[in-house]
Simulated scan of single mutants.
Amino acid sequence: MSATDILTALVSFPSIVGTPNAGIVEWVRSYLERFGIPVHILPGPESDRANLFASIGPSDKAGYILSGHMDVVPAHEAGWSSDPFALRRDGEKLFGRGTSDMKGFLAAVLAAVPALVASPLTRPIHLAFSYDEEAGCRGVPHLLARLPELCVAPLGAVIGEPSDMRPILAHKGKAAARITLRGRSGHSSRPDLGLNAVHAMATVLQAAVSAAQDLASGPFDPTFEPPYSSLQVGLIQGGQALNIIPDRCNLDIEARAIAGVDPATLLAPIQAAAEVLRASGIGVEWEDLSAYPALSLARHTALAGLLTELTDQEPLAAVSYGTEAGLFQAAGVDAIICGPGDIGRAHKPDEYILATELSACQSMIEALGKRCCA
């Protein structure tokens, strides 16, 4: 099958983040087993979704991991010119949800499998396909926990997020949380008899705004845009009707941290502001939604040099979005970002990838295979 044929199949699975993914996992498993490749299905604690791990080549040698996620963001937004889960081709453009982010990389990897299987590999190439990356990399930690039993310690991991096939050395870390405040409902004409959870959340919201403003003052890392850690409230919900005192309010908040800063610590002042409200009778709940560390790979590492040679492109110092790469590095595996497509096309209507980008990625993977034959 060509990379485009494989991408057609992968896009047809609406593997929305946070939903069961047995369909796409089974399709990939079946495809790989046709080439005699042993496949490990690794269910997560949710029980209705799983990671997938497979190895090509000798099991007793150190090799390279090709890592990507099988989930995609929803496609409810207006503006799609066609069914987002049916690949549509218009010239070199291949439209569909996940084409760039990041089923295009998975398709290129799978299209390279026949060449890899036919090669006399002296070092293995591993495929690590994860779930729920779009919810803060929730799936890959469970895969990494099993890695010592799946393979010899790898030489490095290539995370195929869309990068225009340019290697990327660093990204920010992230932590996200949900704060729930519980008050007491009642008729809005008697605010003295209730506890307004939305009003109480204003204190937390102000703490978040102040913290975000403080972060803009540094510390700085000029490799990132912006060159400082950041914090934002992305969602706030509360109340039932205008004449009912709201007894509940939720706020979702995230922090993105430059290398060397633990993103979870950036949320601590906001959690402290919420806890103060207990004294007034407000109930406070804090739920950690997701977290992953920053990636920081030195330019002089062997992995950076290898990807520079394979792509014939100098690495980009950093990007501000996050990936699974930081988790691989935290687990002791050097990691670098390099994949087909453009992050600017992701998470929007008429997401697409170019057929030439798929071919370039497949060629890079096959070239990696040749390096693993030396």
Rank of each mutant, 00 (worst) to 15 (best):
A128C: 10
K103S: 07
I168M: 06
L121M: 06
F13S: 05
A325V: 03
K348Y: 05
P114H: 00
G186D: 04
C249D: 02
G63V: 14
G183M: 07
I236D: 13
P124W: 01
N196T: 07
A62W: 01
S217Y: 03
A211D: 03
V39R: 09
A135Q: 05
F220C: 12
P269A: 05
V117M: 04
D214Q: 15
S82G: 14
R371V: 12
P114N: 00
A374Q: 14
A273L: 04
F35D: 10
P263A: 10
S290T: 06
D262I: 02
P293N: 09
D288L: 15
I337F: 08
G339H: 04
T301C: 11
A346T: 11
P246G: 12
M165D: 06
E46I: 03
Y352G: 07
G104A: 01
V333H: 15
A268F: 02
P38E: 13
L358I: 04
H171P: 11
D132P: 00
P43T: 02
S163K: 05
L147W: 00
I41V: 14
V28I: 14
I56Q: 06
N51G: 06
A197F: 04
R248Q: 14
R184S: 10
A279K: 14
G104H: 01
M165F: 04
P45W: 01
G332L: 07
L106S: 09
G260E: 00
I179A: 08
L231W: 03
R89L: 01
Q271A: 12
A255K: 13
I244A: 13
A177D: 02
A325W: 00
V209Y: 08
G79K: 02
V233Q: 09
P269S: 09
T356E: 11
W286Y: 15
I253V: 14
L66G: 14
G160T: 01
A202M: 13
R182E: 04
E275P: 03
L289I: 07
